[in-house]
């Protein structure tokens, strides 16, 4: 059997792992707001300190966190270059007669932008992708969004679709492998030829995979009907999510962080964004 880990969930026992998934969704949102509250060098320093604390609390290895930053390196580089060259300010750093003008404000802007993006990615990663399984996330979203049911948003149905999709990923992965082996045994070649030839070679895999997925869907629908499924109305839950003291403490802590950041904005040491 394959071990199927979707996304980047990192199984560990930590304070953050144990939080209610709803709390983590809310904390991720609060944290995003926090990153945008920072305006001064001091508050950015506090923000970076807070993200370091989170990394320690979550017990996620540093290399995983650095790896998560790799895909956004290009965006960071691009936006910081734009900031450096396009920001106009008062403190010109390059000689007057140069065509390219770099201002001190541009450098500060770039630095803050880099910090903000990195903290944003690491912070939401710690709260959501690293410490919360997709299924827990689905449950959390279903419950957080349940007030939307009043305006006829099919929240339960979307959550059910998500759950079933997650449930069937390993099953269909296994099936794909089986079909590939069956086609290889019949002489199919997936590894050589031009890109177009290789894409074409996938057709004999996709067609049976789709047919079987539809058959599975019909079977599953019958099985669900047999088990009295009739939508989300009147359903009870085996595992009900409950906020515990630690959830409230963490939410309080992140809100306090936000307030602190705002207060630190008035601290005029270093550069302060306009």
């Amino acid at each position: 059997m394959k071990s199927v880990t979707f996304g980047q969930y990192y199984p560990a026992e930590s304070l953050i792992h144990r939080l209610d998934p709803r709390t983590k969704v809310l904390l991720a949102l609060f944290y995003i707001v926090c990153t945008f509250l920072c305006k001064s060098l001091v508050s950015f320093a506090a923000l970076v300190a807070s993200v370091c604390v989170l990394v320690l609390l979550s017990r996620i290895p540093m290399r995983l966190i650095l790896r998560s930053l790799r895909p956004i390196l290009f965006i960071i580089a691009f936006t910081s270059l734009i900031n450096v060259f396009m920001t106009k300010g008062e403190h010109l750093l390059t000689p007057e007669n140069w065509a390219v003008k770099i201002y001190a404000e541009g450098l500060w802007n770039a630095l803050f932008m880099i910090l903000r993006i990195m903290v944003l990615i690491v912070g939401t990663g710690i709260f959501l992708t690293y410490t919360t399984t997709p299924i827990a996330l689905t449950d959390a979203l279903e419950q957080l969004l349940s007030p939307l049911k009043k305006i006829k948003v099919p929240v339960h149905d979307f959550a059910m679709m998500m759950t079933i999709a997650l449930r069937f990923i390993p099953t269909l992965t296994e099936e794909t492998e089986k079909i590939m082996n069956a086609q290889k045994a019949r002489g199919a070649d997936f590894t050589s030829g031009s890109l177009l030839a290789r894409a074409k070679a996938l057709v004999p895999i996709l067609v049976p995979l789709f047919v079987s997925a539809f058959n599975r869907a019909f079977d599953l629908a019958s099985a669900m009907e047999c088990r009295c499924y009739h939508g989300g109305e009147g359903r009870t839950r085996l595992n009900v999510l409950r906020y515990r003291a630690i959830d409230w403490v963490m939410m309080g802590a992140v809100i306090a962080l936000g307030v602190t950041l705002i207060l630190l904005n008035s601290c005029s040491f270093g550069f302060v964004l306009g």
């Binding site: 449930r167 088990r227 009295c228 839950r237």
Partner: peptide, 16 residues
């Protein structure tokens, strides 16, 4: 099987 954990799958019918 509907759910990703055994006990939650068993609970599916009575939950409904």
């Amino acid at each position: 099987l509907v759910a990703t954990i055994v006990e939650e799958d068993v609970a599916f019918g009575p939950e409904n």
